[in-house]
Design a protein around this nucleic acid. Structure first.
Length: 277
DNA sequence: CCACGATCCTGCTAGC
DNA sequence: TGCTAGCAGGATCGTG
């Protein structure tokens, strides 16, 4: 579920809550959600202090010491809640499957679909993970780099945007919306984008992700902030989840839906013409 | 190199 | 009203 903006918001909010706190205990009810296994995970984290928090693509990393890092991924429906001693329990949330009990407060991992996980990584495993991820669009991805990525692939542009090895953090919502902003058809082979279309798309990606960040992310269904509040970008979707609704530029046109690479894809046939680029 | 489907799960909803 | 098929913010792996 969460894409770059959502994970970034969670990271910023968690920094205020869990940094420099010691992990006192771990509770879980789904073995799969703790890697490489619950016993190893528990042994590896209990007694350690959370020294730093980093985000890369849609991953969160909790640095415990020089050798050990916890990688967190929320996948489709995961969310983190922080609960103080005062504000007791998120008893309403029946999807909490992991709890990290801290010296003060508790970090809950809630996930209806249970695809999310916490994974204990060694430094070398972390390096391996990091080097497989493309540049961060909001801080590192230059237009020059973007040109190289786009120009060297014959894949459909939307699939390329979603490929974390090429560019970090873009998911289905923002891929759809960025392509609409840039007026590019999702199925266009990447290396057929004109120079100006490539420039426009680079800006569109940055613009969409920045807007989502400002609006607190997209709380379409599951996503929530660490305090349980919703983001608001879902009220500003350009094409995502708007099949059959009017295009924001062409009120007479209806947003179309089809599957591309197994993912729901939305576009306006008038502004995003496959043969006009 | 590229396209597509299956898979890990559970919840929600459109349509009959 | 009740049921069911299909779909869902991700990532990975296998097949053709």
């Amino acid at each position: 579920m969460p894409e770059l903006p959502e994970v970034e918001i969670i990271k910023r909010q968690l920094e205020d809550k869990i940094l420099q706190k010691k992990i006192a205990d771990v509770w879980w009810d789904r073995d799969r959600m703790l890697r490489p296994g619950p016993a190893t995970f528990q042994r590896g984290v209990v007694g350690k202090v959370i020294q730093a928090l980093d985000r890369r693509a849609k991953y969160l990393f909790l640095r415990l010491d020089e050798r050990v890092v916890v990688e967190a991924h929320l996948k489709m429906s995961g969310r983190f809640f922080f609960v103080d001693r005062e504000h007791k329990g998120d008893g309403k949330d029946k999807y909490v499957h992991v709890r990290l009990k801290l010296e003060e407060g508790e970090l809950f991992l809630s996930d209806p679909r249970t695809f999310g996980y916490l994974s204990l990584l060694t430094t070398s495993q972390l390096q391996q993970r990091l080097q497989a991820i493309g540049p961060e669009p909001l801080t590192d991805l230059t237009l020059q780099q973007f040109r190289e990525i786009v120009g060297s692939s014959g894949r459909k542009i939307k699939e390329l945007l979603l490929d974390q090895r090429k560019i970090a953090g873009i998911g289905n919502i923002y891929a759809n919306d960025a392509l609409w902003l840039a007026r590019i058809h999702p199925s266009l082979p990447a290396n057929q984008l004109s120079s100006s279309a490539t420039t426009t798309l680079h800006s569109a990606v940055v613009e969409v992700l920045s807007e989502a960040l400002r609006k607190g992310g997209s709380s379409q269904q599951w996503y929530r902030h660490v305090d349980g509040k919703k983001g608001s970008y879902q009220h500003f979707f350009k094409v995502y989840a708007r099949a059959g609704a009017a295009c924001l530029r062409h009120p007479g046109q209806k947003i179309q839906y089809f599957k591309l690479g197994g993912r729901g894809t939305f576009y306006c046939p008038q502004c995003q013409d496959l043969y006009d680029f």
